[in-house]
């Protein structure tokens, strides 16, 4: 699923990566526990999380996550955005809660 479609489904704001929305996500993972993300996330994934700190971006970088979506209307600090920009990781923010956001993506065909 293209990142642009994900942004549309989640009614999300693009914080970084407007020109990268044609990238294709192969899977998604929803968690506030970076340890679990490191254990279970698949390749070329989108991460949905309510956690906002630099380690979210570093976790995404190490696991080749292509897009981080902050749920519950969370917004990253400029330092976090800069970390993501340096690694070309798309950042989205959606007002939807984790359960709903994951459910919407799953029901539209994006599997975990």
């Amino acid at each position: 699923m293209r990142l642009g479609e994900i942004a549309k489904i989640l009614d999300a704001t693009v914080i970084y990566g407007k020109d990268l929305l044609d990238r294709d996500a192969a899977s998604a993972c929803g968690s506030d526990f970076m340890s679990d993300v490191l254990a279970y996330v698949k390749k070329q994934a989108v991460l949905l999380t309510g956690l906002v700190n630099p380690q979210v971006i570093r976790t995404a970088d190490m696991t080749d996550i292509i897009c981080v979506t902050f749920v519950r209307g969370k917004h990253p600090t400029p330092e976090i955005v800069e970390l993501a920009r340096a690694r070309d990781i798309v950042l989205l923010s959606s007002d939807k809660r984790m359960y709903e956001a994951c459910g919407l993506l799953y029901s539209n065909g994006l599997r975990g």
Partner: peptide, 15 residues
């Protein structure tokens, strides 16, 4: 608070 401490560090390194 930062999303770690789930007891997955060494098991993940093994994985």
């Amino acid at each position: 608070e930062l999303g770690f401490g789930a007891g997955m560090g060494l098991p993940n390194m093994k994985r």
